[in-house]
Each structure stands twice: as C-alpha cells, then as structure tokens.
Design a protein around this nucleic acid. Sequence first.
DNA 1: ACCATAGGAATGAACGTTCATTCAGTAATA
DNA 2: TATTACTGAATGAACGTTCATTCCTATGGT
Lengths: 194, 194
Amino acid sequence: MSKHDKHDKREEIVRAALELIAEHGFHGAPMAMIAERANVGAGTIYRYFENKDVLIAELYQNLEAKMYPVILEGYSADKPTRERFIHLGTALLRYFIENPLDFRFLEQFHNSPFGAEHRRDKILGVKDGCDVFRELFEEGIARQILKEFPLSILFSLSFGPLAAVARDHILGFVVLNEVLIVWTVEACWDGIKR
Amino acid sequence: MSKHDKHDKREEIVRAALELIAEHGFHGAPMAMIAERANVGAGTIYRYFENKDVLIAELYQNLEAKMYPVILEGYSADKPTRERFIHLGTALLRYFIENPLDFRFLEQFHNSPFGAEHRRDKILGVKDGCDVFRELFEEGIARQILKEFPLSILFSLSFGPLAAVARDHILGFVVLNEVLIVWTVEACWDGIKR
DNA sequence: ACCATAGGAATGAACGTTCATTCAGTAATA
DNA sequence: TATTACTGAATGAACGTTCATTCCTATGGT
C-alpha cells in the first residue's frame, strides 16, 4: 500500500470526528466512538493527533480553509456594496444549508472554551475570511451607505440572523429554498443599510 | 432554624449552579464544585434535586418565569406594531445586558441536548413568552406592515441579532449604552418591516 | 522465486482521573 | 429521644490517554 492510504486513515478519523461532534457535541463524541466510526483502533488517533483538543482545532481550521474559497467564488470588489453583501450572505447561507455537518460543528466550536480563545485572537489580528466583511462594512460606512454602527454590531446584525435561520432550517423548523435565502439576506441588508 | 432557611439552602444551590454553568458551561460545573460554591455538602443537592438534569431544567424554568414579567412590564397590545416591537426588543436586550449570567446560561442551555428537546416542545404547543412575539408578528403580517416571511424567519431576524449583540457586549467586544440598544433594535425592525 | 527479518503502523486492553450519585454516619431540631 | 437535615468519603461508570503487543510490508540474502 502507498502513502495515500495513510491519508485515508487520517481522513477517516477527521470525517468521523466531524460527524459525531456535529451530531452529539464535543462531550457526546468520545474518542472511542470516533475511533469506532472511523474503523480504526482507539490508539491510532494518537498517531495523527496529539490529543483531542488538537484534533478539534485542526478540524476547525480545515473547515475555515474549505469554506473561504467557496464563499468568495465569483466575488468581485468592484461591484456595488449591496450586491457584494447579498453575494456573501447568500453564499454563506447556502454553504451552511448544503453542509449541515459543517455548520453544526462550527456552532459547537463557538460555544466552547475553544471559541472564546479564538475570538480573542480575532480581536487582535483579524484573520482570513473576516477581512472581506470588515472591508465591506468599513467602505459602506465611509460612503454613508450603511448605518454608522460599531463594526461588531454590523457583524451581529448580519450573521446573527443567518446563523439562526440556518439552524432552524437544519433542525427542520423552516424549509429554505433559493428564493427564501435571497429574501432573508435582503432583509439583513435592510437592517444595516441607512 | 425555620422553614425559611431550607429555602435559603435551595436558593444557594440554584445561585451557585447558575453562576458556574454560565461561567464554565455544563461540563465545567461539576456537582462537587456547585456544592462547594453553595457552601453545602455534595449530597445535599440531591435532597432538593433528583439529579443534575433536573437541576438544570428547573434552573431554566426559573429563568423563563423571571424574565417574562420584566420584559412585558409596560407592554400594551394597543400601541402600534413598531412601538411594541421596539419595546419588546429593547427590554430583552436590556435584560440580557443587566443579567449576563442569565444570558450566558440560556446560551449554554440552547446549545445542549436539552435545548433540542425544548425546541421540539415549542413547535407543538408554543409556550408562554413566545406567544407575545407570535401574535405581534402575525398581526404585523396581516396588516401588511411586516414582510411576508415564515414566522420562524421573522424570529431569527429579530432574536438572532439581539443574542449576537448581547454576547459581544458581555464578552467585551462592544460597549452598549441605552442609545446603541435602541438603535440596534430599530435596525432589527428595519430588517423585518416591509 | 522464496524466505527471513526489521521496523513502522495499528491495535485495544489497561490505567489514572474525573464525575454524578449514594449512603452510612453526624448534627440539629422538636 | 425521635426525627429530620446535612455531610463528605466511598462507589462505579465513563472518559482521555498510554503502551506492550500484533500486524503488515518492504527489503535483502539465498
């Protein structure tokens, strides 16, 4: 067998961990259960990840790296502010709906000791994906297109509803279709525009 | 000692549990630690609560019962839709900011096995506090004041941002004052109004 | 072509820790 | 004294992690 199969095992572990954590939360996904679902011995996980925390952190970074390009696909900084916002918002919401496991994992992650630390990092040096939104908001405020709120409130007014709607869809309280997705993001825009 | 002191112990347990769970989450608040902070033997908790789950569930119901009248104080079904929405929204946000422990506990609760079950209950027979919002939204749609969205999306567009803003305030990412609170809720209104 | 063997990969039973819960004993109350 | 309230050490279950052992395969000598 070749080097490729090593990766197979590693990826099996990552997949199993994502599934179980998304479905049952961090504390409902013991290492033994992850190992079982990955068809791997319990000890094998520790050949690839130092411990559970490292596994989870890597899972999170995997996700961010995976989402970023999907959401930015077709994004152009030249288009009007509103159009760019709708693009990002709908792309994000679509991603969440099409990848419910990813969404559920992210939610678990943000409501955990990890999440708090991670937020602190983002305060100091904002990382990766948020920059796009930050730029968009700052430009929108400067051009007087957006309400003059602290950035963090604009974030909340935009992502708060998107996350809530995605959660409701995944839990089956609404059925979102393409039209509803766009309308929802447009409603968010109405909330932040002047 | 009189009957009153029994209540004192019970309330000490409830207070300690709320503090620790709000601060460290369900799994960072072992029964032994709750007992210690309540100045009570570990076994004493079980004189008042069958087990940890029951303690948590009762904590949650305490909170709901405590919040409901505070938020409805001064609420009048006669006033215009917008005014009523602003009243409820600002009251809720103010409550969260003034009672950060309550807010953090509610967040922990909603991101847990309990939360999911509880949501299912609310689907069938909507309980207590949500009725006010439900009425408000249904009336707003009927009068063509609000966008014609599924109720659950209107909920998300309203509470999503409020929860996110409250979280940011409590974690120190924004400092909300009375003006910002009102502006934020008005922005939510802009999101749901036609 | 065959076997021997070295060494990394994989395993899962075993370990130490932590937690919710119990219960035998103690203190307070009447 | 009898009853009730309280205590915290003891218990067992569950967890993350370790490590002695097994398995697999690539290599080199015959």
